[in-house]
């Protein structure tokens, strides 16, 4: 692992190992909370906050934690941070809280976080673990926000960000295709986004979806 330069660690989550578009993990929140760019970005930031905090704590404590009980400890650490994020969003961003609903507590089972804890933070020093969380987190935010923006643009003719609507084409007579902000639109837009990424990277990489999705296999508790 020490072969990774810090720069590589930071950038690989952005594109080469983008959690949503390449690794295909964390799909549930990515599809469910992306009916507009604003909620999608909020979900991304919440996930990254948990990822960063858990990576830091797990990396710092990696030498004291016995190998056999590391998974229960990861789960405790992650669920604690998720609960904290849940309460903070509820207290300070009530609208976001209402739109994200149960997907905030469900960050706990987001494979990205447990996956990075197990594969990276528990084996690496503090600084690379922070960079890893920042890279993966930004990759997740990017993917989910772009997905949200496309869906909102096609389905509602607008793009909203940080609680404000930046513009709305419905005023100019644009007839939105509601399908895109409804559940089917999420699958279809993500499908085309993955096809686009495949074209850009000219990789055949995504074929073994089964193997990649199986990152969800928790190492036995």
């Amino acid at each position: 692992m020490s072969k990774h330069s810090n720069w590589n660690v930071l950038t690989q989550g952005l594109f080469k190992e983008n959690p949503v578009l390449i690794l295909m993990i964390g799909l549930c929140p990515a599809l469910a909370t992306s009916s507009n760019a604003n909620d999608a970005f909020g979900m991304g930031v919440a996930t990254m906050a948990v990822l960063l905090a858990s990576n830091i704590l797990i990396s710092v404590t990696r030498k004291f934690v016995p190998e056999e009980i590391r998974i229960p400890i990861f789960i405790i650490v992650i669920s604690t941070f998720v609960t904290i994020v849940d309460y903070i969003i509820h207290a300070y961003a009530i609208e976001l809280y209402a739109s994200l609903g149960i997907f905030i507590p469900l960050i706990v089972v987001n494979c990205i976080i447990l996956g990075r804890a197990e594969a990276f933070a528990s084996k690496n020093a503090l600084i690379p673990s922070i960079l890893d969380a920042l890279g993966m987190g930004t990759g997740f935010i990017l993917a989910i926000t772009i997905l949200g923006a496309i869906r909102e643009l096609l389905g509602n003719g607008s793009i909203s960000f940080l609680g404000r609507e930046l513009f709305n084409m419905q005023a100019a007579g644009f007839k939105p295709a509601l399908l895109f902000i409804m559940p089917p639109g999420a699958f279809i837009v993500l499908g085309f986004m993955i096809a686009g990424v495949k074209r850009l990277t000219r990789e055949k990489g995504c074929e073994d979806l089964e193997k990649k999705a199986s990152c969800c296999v928790p190492p036995s508790v």
Binding site: I76, S79, T80, I88
Partner: peptide
């Protein structure tokens, strides 16, 4: 193992109690 697990659980529960008591009034 028992001690480590207990420490983590204790710290987790305590910090959640703190966050809860700070945010619930808001």
């Amino acid at each position: 193992m028992g001690v480590t697990l207990a420490i983590f659980c204790g710290v987790a529960a305590a910090s959640l109690q703190v966050v809860y008591s700070l945010t619930q009034p808001i």
